[in-house]
Write a protein that binds this DNA or RNA. Sequence first.
DNA 1: AATAATACGTCAACAATGTTGACATTGTTT
DNA 2: AAACAATGTCAACATTGTTGACGTATTATT
Lengths: 165, 165
Amino acid sequence: MEFDKDEQGLYEFIELLFFAYRDFTAGPDEELMAFGFGRAHHRVLHFVSRNPGLMVAELLDILRVSKQSLNRVLKQLIEEKFVFQEQGAGDRRRRHLFLTAKGQELADRLGAIQFEQISGSLKGFSPKAYQNICDGLLSLIADDDQKEVLGRFDEARKRSRGSDE
Amino acid sequence: MEFDKDEQGLYEFIELLFFAYRDFTAGPDEELMAFGFGRAHHRVLHFVSRNPGLMVAELLDILRVSKQSLNRVLKQLIEEKFVFQEQGAGDRRRRHLFLTAKGQELADRLGAIQFEQISGSLKGFSPKAYQNICDGLLSLIADDDQKEVLGRFDEARKRSRGSDE
DNA sequence: AATAATACGTCAACAATGTTGACATTGTTT
DNA sequence: AAACAATGTCAACATTGTTGACGTATTATT
């Protein structure tokens, strides 16, 4: 397996991504079933947990689904008190999304499942090798989206520093 | 971004995988629409292309869906002459799956789209870095499945050597 | 002040893809 | 002959995606 237009290698890469994604999402999916939720709910919980105060429009841009599709799961999460909204201070049309204690608890549990999976899988990797994997995944993302993704990473790290210290 | 139970880094890893998978599947999805097919059809075309003579039971194990769900798309692909079946020589209950010329053409076109995406994204990576990415993806796959995946990789490489020389 | 644009919510219909359960067919094994 | 295995099929239903149309605040523009 080396990179150089080797057709076999490229096909293998495609399959690795498919199987990795398949097995990676399997764990949380099980846990979610107990709540009557699915993968779509997980995505909302994840991104609201990581970006507290996220607006609906931003979430739509992240998930790339129609607002009707998002609204179906978001409505459930709000009705069942996993998520709540706050009207924007400046612009009162905006709804900022946050997790309730219950929502945060579930998001954290799902995160913990994936943490174990990742650290179990990658514990043998050097920091350098791990960096290569992250860089590789990042460059698979469409050029226009990479900036947005990295921007949100930065904000999350700033928030985390702000609350830790 | 370094590997060591850094919560931020692990969350970032999760998101990278999500966005990479999202953007990686977007290309073929568009092409498939023109044929009235979806991602489920793509998976069948891909794995039959890579493993000619694959049995239905093996495909079910790869995709991890119910036979009824598979049958729906497989039936379409057979009726529209992208895939054909051959009765097993030894065990005549078995149906071995193959692509027709038309099916192979479509599978190749979809492969080409993803090839361009991958090589465009990873062209700056050293062979070593590329190897790290592949190893990382592989280890994200459930332990029991890694052997199967690697086994099929080997078979595909053997087949490819057999027909190339 | 009237009008347009924005952010969001909602109703309805429909499509793709997943599920389970039940049953039929054909071929192999015991 | 009876049991098992591999596949196909019918039906019902769940989740998550789509489009189109419309409603309601709120803000921005003219």
